[in-house]
Computed example of a mutant assay.
Amino acid sequence: MTAQPLPILGGMSAEEFLQDYWQKKPLLIRNACPEAGSLMEAEELAGLSLDDTIESRIILERSPIDWELKLGPFDNKLYKNLPPTHWTLLVQAVDHHVPAVSNLLEAFPFIPSWRIDDIMASFATKDGSVGPHFDYYDVFLIQADGQRRWQLGQRCDDQTPLLPNLGIRVLKDFQAIEEWIVNPGDVLYLPPGIAHYGVALNNCMTYSVGFRAPSEHEILSDFVHHSSLHQNQDKRYSDPDLLLQENPGWISPQAVDRVQEILQNMVSDRSQIEIWMAGYLSQTKYEPQPEPPEEDYSGNDVLDLLAENYSLHREESSRLVYIADNQNHPEIFFINGEQLEILPITEPLVLFLCQHRYYDPAQLSIYCRSPDSLALLTRLLNMGVIYFEEDQFQN
C-alpha cells in the first residue's frame, strides 16, 4: 500500500497512523466521515433493538454511582416509559443488518479485515452516557449526529478498580486528562486501555468500529480444541526409558520433559497454526450463516447480471480470509470458518473479494473471463456469501 492520504485519517497516510498512533495514542480527526449522518435514523436503530436475534442494551444513569442495565430485545412500551434524558441505547453488529453501515468498513483497508469485530451503534439522549470506562481493544468512534463531549483519562488494565455491584464496567476513579467536543463527521481513535468518558450534549448517534483482540485464554482454548480434532488419537504418552523410582508418587523431571515435548510439538507446526487461525478468525460473530438465494444462479445468469451492471455486495456478516505463500499468492481460502478449495487461476478474484465489500461488476466481469473464476463467484453467490443488489452500480 502506498503512502497516500486517507480521508478517514484526515489526510494522514496509513503508514504514519500505524507507526505513530495505532495501539499507542489517541487521535481526533475532524470531519473525517461526513457521510455518517445519512446512514440510518435513530428510529431505525430502535427498530433493530426490537429484534430478538440482535444484541442490544439500554444503560440509564441515575447518579455517578448508580447505573441500570437493561438487556434487549425491547418493545415500544419500554421506549415510551424511558425518561427524557440520561440514557443510551446500544445495538451490536449494526453493520450485519444495514448495508450502508457495513460500507463504512471500506474506509479501513489499512487494518487486517480479520481484526475487525463489528460496528456498534449507540443513540444517546441529552446527558446520556455509559460511564467512564476502558476497552481491551482499539476503536474508532464516528460521530453521526449531535454532539458528544469526550474526556480521555489514564491508562488502565485488568487491575484498575471498577464500581462494585453494577451490570456495566464503570471506573471507580476517572482522571480526565484531555477533553474534546465532537461534531457530526468527527472521528476519535482510541487505543486499548485508555480511559474515556463520553456524554451526549444533545440527542446524538455514534458508530463504534471495534477491533477483535482475542485473549490469550481464548486463543489457547480454541487452538487446543482444534488440535485435539486433528491429532492422531492413538498416539499416546510413552516412556521406554523409564527408571526405577524410590517413590511411585513422584512426577519425575523426565516425565515433565516428555509432556513438555508433546505440547511443544503441538504448537511447532506452523502450517497447522495458519489453518487454525484462518478457520477461527473467519468465523461469523453471530449465527445464523448467510442465507442462500431462493433459486441458484447459473454461470450465464451471473454473466448477464454483471453485464447489466448490477451491484454486488458481500453478505454483511461474512468474513473472508486467505493464507498465502511468501509471494502473497492465495493458497487456502476460508469463508465463515470453512475452508474452500481454490485453483491458482482464481487468485486475482480471491484477492479482490477479500479486499472489498462492495464490488464493481465491470471488474468482476474481467475476472470471470476465466471459467474457474466464474464458477467460484457463482458458488459464492449460491452460498449467499455475496449477493446482487437491486440497484445498478455507481462509483
Rank of each mutant, 00 (worst) to 15 (best):
L90S: 04
A307W: 05
L305A: 04
H96T: 04
G279D: 08
S38P: 02
D234T: 14
S373H: 05
E316N: 10
D239P: 10
V98R: 12
E390A: 13
N309I: 10
D222E: 13
Y280S: 12
F134E: 07
A36H: 02
R357Q: 10
G128N: 12
L9A: 01
H225S: 08
R62Y: 09
L171V: 11
Q151I: 00
G167L: 12
G193S: 08
P164N: 15
P184I: 14
Q272F: 00
Q147V: 05
I332Q: 11
F74M: 00
F110E: 07
Q175Y: 14
S252G: 09
P26M: 01
H226T: 09
F393Y: 15
E15I: 08
G37N: 12
G198S: 04
L78K: 00
Q233Y: 14
R258V: 12
V209A: 04
E390W: 00
L60V: 02
L349I: 08
H97S: 12
D301G: 02
D75Y: 05
E390C: 01
M266K: 01
Q231H: 10
Q154F: 09
V139A: 13
R212L: 04
A375T: 09
N265T: 06
D66V: 03
N247C: 14
Y297V: 03
Q175F: 12
A32K: 02
P112W: 11
N103Y: 07
L27N: 02
N183P: 06
I386N: 00
E216V: 13
Y189C: 13
N328P: 00
L242T: 07
Y237W: 10
N31W: 05
P348E: 03
E347A: 01
T85A: 02
D173P: 05
A42F: 03
S56Y: 09
V385A: 07
Y136R: 15
T2G: 06
D138H: 11
C204M: 06
R236C: 13
A124R: 09
I65E: 15
N76S: 08
L171S: 10
P290T: 01
I116Q: 13
A200R: 05
I194E: 06
P26W: 02
L188H: 13
A144Y: 05
V256W: 04
E179D: 08
E347Q: 07
E294G: 01
Y197V: 08
L306H: 02
L166I: 06
D52A: 11
A200C: 06
L305Y: 04
S113K: 12
R30S: 10
D241H: 15
L78I: 05
G210E: 10
R57N: 03
N336K: 00
E43D: 15
A324T: 03
H96D: 13
K235L: 10
I345P: 11
P361Q: 00
